[in-house]
Design a protein around this nucleic acid. Structure first.
Lengths: 245, 245
DNA sequence: CGCATAATTGATGGTTATCAAGACCAGTGG
DNA sequence: CCACTGGTCTTGATAACCATCAATTATGCG
């Protein structure tokens, strides 16, 4: 650590003022760096989890695989995310983590979380809150996959990615890069690559989105939001109940 | 509290030895009691969340509703569960909580969690771990709804309920009461009541389950587990990384 | 340039939704 | 005691949506 600002710190300070102690605790999480090539496996389901990772750059995703090859992509990770958190409660990881692009990760042993729990109730509360927020996002995804049509699911998927990217990149407008293949988007939405292709083509013909050079452009974001009843969980966070500094 | 043992304490002490301080902290969460009739609304999406609830007895469920009436049931709650946890990160609740049977709840203000964060890093870690475990369960549900056939989803749903019930009722065997209607089971699995009826009938004809007097009997639990690749997340919890007592 | 991978597109089929009618059941009131 | 009622469950007929299969085009990389 480092001449450039930590993404984790920048993401967390959106929600709460961090004390010097908090900054020190977080710095320990990003002490090491590790480069990961594109399309590489970072963690396999069933492995014993010793290390968590902070994403410094790159795109990755977590997926749960079935014995016959069916796959559910459960989240897409970007700079500032902590990988492996849901798994720490379990002896054996449930998820496969896979890089999409080249990525830089900061591994840290899960025992470093102790120190946070013992030292900073306020930072603990924030990590807790973020993990509960993530839980709500999983619930949103469950609703999307369980109760929405293909068109609604794709709209939901694109909006979720866009809003997530805006958290760590405030300047982002309505255009973003989409390095995931349509097969991967299908695995994230519970559809097939063919349906993704047809649905996105339809959204494009209806002028709700556009696609150019690997970018997605949300041309009618309000219409997309109405289409799938999207709620931005990244914005509305309640920190009032946290312990005092 | 009280002549009979708290369900929350009994559920938590499965995972960790609780100190006297911890027991005091938990007792505060169950200081009040509130009776809820069957089929009543406990909490509405959009409400500002001030109080959480510990379930003392009864069945309830949390659901996310869509404007046009579609509904996704996201979890079924039993004695020992804490209601409203995923919502505390947000200013406004995302979920509707609804009672199925008569129920007894213990409401407590969400600021009581502060005291836990400040006083007991170890209990904090346990609550954190449980909420992460719940997150993994949501991920399992996402996979079920996203990638499984109706038959597999129903098997998954029944196994999940059974294994959850065994946490607070060790003596339970393969038979349990099912107070949810098939419409509600459909909303939990992303199917319709008609499909639930046909699928359960088929499972019964195949002698994997039985149904008598409102009870479900898992006749071939191993076969059901193989059918949907079920993993019991309630058993495999790692507490080694917790801060020392 | 040539190869591998990804995306598009059309034809066909399967799983589940939808619709609708009847059976069952518990509770209610005549 | 028995019709009446409202709800749930069952069952069959039909339809819609998406999966599957397959062929072609586009894209990217060595």
């Amino acid at each position: 650590m480092s001449d450039y600002e930590s993404c984790l710190v920048s993401k967390l300070s959106n929600y709460m003022d961090l004390s010097d102690t908090d900054l020190d605790l977080l710095a320990r999480l990003e002490a090491e760096e590790r480069n990961v090539p594109q399309q590489a496996s970072v963690q396999k389901a069933g492995d014993r989890i010793e290390y968590l990772h902070v994403v410094k750059s790159g795109w990755l995703f977590s997926a749960m695989d079935m014995p016959d090859g069916r796959r559910q992509v459960v989240s897409v990770h970007h700079a500032g995310d902590i990988l492996g958190l849901p798994d720490i409660a379990l002896n054996h990881g449930a998820l496969n983590v896979h890089s999409v692009t080249q990525a830089v990760l900061c591994p840290f042993p899960k025992t470093h979380l102790d120190k946070i729990f013992e030292t900073s109730p306020r930072l603990t509360a924030l990590l807790f809150a973020i993990s509960l927020r993530d839980q709500v996002i999983f619930i949103d995804k469950l609703r999307a996959v369980g109760r929405m049509s293909a068109r609604e699911r794709v709209a939901y998927f694109l909006l979720d990615i866009a809003h997530r990217l805006r958290v760590t990149n405030g300047s982002m407008t309505d255009t973003f890069r989409m390095p995931l293949t349509q097969t991967e988007i299908g695995d994230a939405t519970g559809l097939t690559s063919v349906t993704i292709s047809k649905t996105m083509m339809q959204l494009q013909l209806d002028k709700l989105i556009d696609r150019r050079e690997g970018n997605i452009i949300l041309r009618e974001e309000a219409a997309l939001i109405a289409l799938c009843d999207y709620v931005d969980r990244y914005a509305d966070m309640d920190t009032d109940w946290f312990p005092a500094a």
